[in-house]
Simulated scan of single mutants.
Amino acid sequence: MRDGVTVWARRARAGLRGWGGVAAMAVLCALALAFVLLLPLTQSGGAETPRSGGRGVAEGVHARAEDCEAPEKQTLPPSTADGPTIRAIKARTGAKRKLVVGVDQNSYRWGYRDPNTEGARLEGFDIDLAHRIAEAILGDRDAVQFKAIPTDQRIPAIQDGRVDMVVRTMTISCARIGEVAFSAPYFRTGQQVLAPKSSTITGYDDSLTEKRICTAAGSTAHAKLEEDRSAGRLSADISVTVPNQLDCLVRLQLGEVDAVVTDGALAASQAAQDPAVELKGKAFTTEFYGVAMKKDADDLVRRVNQVLVDYAKGDWQTSYDTWLSATLGKDSSASKPPAPQYLRTG
């Protein structure tokens, strides 16, 4: 839509050359600005998830700026009450009466297809949580439709209404809380370096100078690398990006890159898939995974947060022991998120 505004403005400017009037251009700019400011109020969501009207530009800016040093705290208090989003999900009939969840199917131990199960069943830590949310909303843990979503399509899939939520090792970040709503954190991790065991790379340090690093497009890892390169803190080639994180491991195996930077929790799973690679150095960030939903799906955010409160009482540890203890260690304390804080008010 905004592209349309740009085209319209360009055509209008071309016409104004014949007028030769600065005042006319000023009027045109004012009209264009008013149109852009009103545009968010005219946008509507997907057919199955009603959007509440009246959310303007000022609120969106406020959401992005609000306590950005702790984006994981910008979520709503838990509740079991149904609102318009949950009622729309429950109103689905027949085979469509399912919670639609965006997931990964290539992240070992998180969301992956196990070839040793019937039909190569989708399993993992994130998958367990998605089943639990479906059970809380629809009364059936299997009432969930999984959609494989590439890393760089997680936010568009939510905004376009292709999924109700994304449960896909998605870090809560300052940039993202302006685009989607997040639950409270359900996992703690941090960025780490993955490289061949024989590599001279020792971690996120000067040993990466002039090295080729692979990251997933749209990931917080890539954003961090771009930030550090711009600030002169990193001298490496970060041009190689891939749609899915596992593709970086393939590039590493083929010798097309020297290292991978991703969440330590994912890197540990990749190292478990290939004994020739290992984690190098310690995590150099602290990040939290959250369930992502539409910006105005307040009732769904509250319900997911209630699920997480109950999940933390036992199911979280059971899932960790099943899927992650083999790669991250039996002691789960470093991976448990902090006690949730619900600082978002609307």
Rank of each mutant, 00 (worst) to 15 (best):
G21H: 15
G21C: 15
G21D: 15
V22G: 11
V22F: 14
A23D: 03
A24P: 02
A24D: 06
A24N: 04
M25R: 10
M25Q: 12
A26E: 03
A26D: 02
V27N: 04
V27I: 13
L28E: 01
C29P: 07
A30F: 10
L31N: 01
A32L: 15
A32S: 08
L33S: 08
L33K: 06
A34T: 07
A34F: 04
A34D: 05
A34L: 10
A34W: 06
A34G: 11
A34M: 08
F35P: 03
V36N: 03
V36K: 02
V36W: 02
V36L: 07
V36D: 03
V36G: 02
L37W: 03
L38Q: 05
L39D: 15
L39E: 15
P40N: 00
P40L: 00
L41S: 00
T42S: 09
Q43Y: 07
S44L: 07
G45Q: 00
A47W: 08
A47G: 10
E48T: 11
T49K: 06
T49C: 04
T49V: 03
P50T: 00
P50A: 02
R51E: 02
R51V: 01
S52D: 05
S52C: 04
G53H: 10
G53A: 12
G53Y: 06
G54W: 00
G54N: 02
G54K: 01
R55D: 02
G56W: 00
G56C: 02
G56L: 01
V57K: 04
A58T: 14
A58H: 08
E59T: 09
E59Q: 12
G60C: 09
G60R: 09
V61W: 14
V61L: 15
H62E: 15
H62Y: 13
H62C: 09
A63K: 07
A63M: 07
R64C: 05
A65V: 13
A65C: 07
E66I: 12
E66A: 14
D67V: 10
D67P: 06
C68I: 14
C68D: 14
E69I: 12
E69D: 12
A70C: 08
A70D: 11
P71T: 13
P71E: 14
Q74H: 10
Q74S: 10
T75E: 02
T75V: 02
L76A: 02
